[in-house]
């Protein structure tokens, strides 16, 4: 009894001492993480800005009409959305069966395959894209939709394999066997039991893949530019050629799908589905 109170008092004392410190750390982290976003976001509605002032000289919505009326920017938005949707579809067709296999089967070469998938992650991105681009010259894939699509799909393979594999592995076998005992066919078991239970994991993988494609900038820039411009690659030229406020508006537009999709999947991502997916299960 005395030991407990002593410990409680001790930890209370430590709390009192560390509360201002952790408070300061919190404030610094808020400024560090949210500060740049807020500072950029305000610019989308700013008339102009004089240096030492902490706010703009006036407010306007003018920049929004500039962006929404610009044809090249509009095309970039279309390209990005179409490419991201296509990437998720192709990636799911290629990777989901493999995810199921990794979760449920023992087979020859499994270990080698796993190392192969790890290896994909272990290559620094820009180096990889440079080697891919060298090959794409020979295959006539530079500045083509197919070339950019291949790069985007490569960027999603790990998400689309790992996260669903962890989800499939987490489906209790006893449930599948119960369904089998009740007379369901193998296909029926998969679609009525396994797939619905693994669906949250698969959706997280799809969201992550969509965003990976939507946000992919370096590979698309090296292989697609200047013929195929997506929203992120358009940013590279935008910040040089347009006023600051236009880049700010474009940034907000570019961030909307990410924020919306990730908020929708937020619970699963923070709940550990993502972290689980990066370790073999």
């Amino acid at each position: 009894m005395t030991m407990i109170t002593k410990r409680a008092r001790k930890s209370a004392a430590r709390l009192n001492f560390s509360r201002p410190l952790s408070g300061l750390f919190c404030v610094l982290m808020v400024v560090f993480i949210l500060g740049p976003l807020a500072w950029l976001g305000i610019r989308a509605f700013a008339e102009s800005w004089t240096f030492p002032n902490l706010g703009p000289d006036g407010w306007t919505l003018r920049w929004w009409s500039v962006v929404l009326g610009d044809e090249t920017l509009g095309r970039a938005v279309q390209n990005s959305l179409a490419l991201a949707a296509l990437t998720v579809l192709v990636s799911a067709c290629i990777c989901l069966p493999a995810a199921y296999a990794f979760a449920r089967y023992e087979f020859w070469g499994r270990r080698t395959f796993l190392i192969g998938l790890f290896a994909l992650n272990a290559f620094p991105k820009m180096g990889l894209y440079v080697t891919i681009a060298s090959l794409f010259y020979a295959l006539n894939l530079m500045s083509t939709v197919l070339g950019v699509l291949i790069v985007h799909v490569l960027g999603t393979v790990v998400f689309m394999t790992w996260i669903p594999a962890a989800a499939f592995a987490a489906v209790p076998r006893s449930l599948e066997e119960a369904a089998r005992d009740a007379g369901a066919s193998k296909l029926r078991v998969f679609f009525s039991v396994t797939f619905p239970l693994a669906l949250p994991g698969i959706l997280v993988a799809a969201v992550m893949s969509f965003l990976a494609s939507f946000d992919e900038a370096q590979g698309s820039y090296l292989i697609g530019a200047p013929d195929i411009m997506t929203m992120p690659t358009q940013m590279y030229t935008l910040v040089l050629n347009y006023p600051n406020q236009v880049a700010a508006v474009f940034s907000i537009l570019l961030a909307i799908p990410s924020v919306a999709l990730l908020l929708a999947a937020h619970k699963h991502i923070v709940g550990g589905t993502l972290a689980e997916g990066f370790q073999i299960k």
């Binding site: 493999a98 296999a101 449920r104 023992e106 087979f107 192969g116 998938l117 490569l154």
Partner: peptide, 18 residues
Amino acid sequence: PLGFFLALPPIILILLFV
């Protein structure tokens, strides 16, 4: 062998383009 063949497509993709 079913597992092997199911797992093959992403591996082929990686071999071919990485």
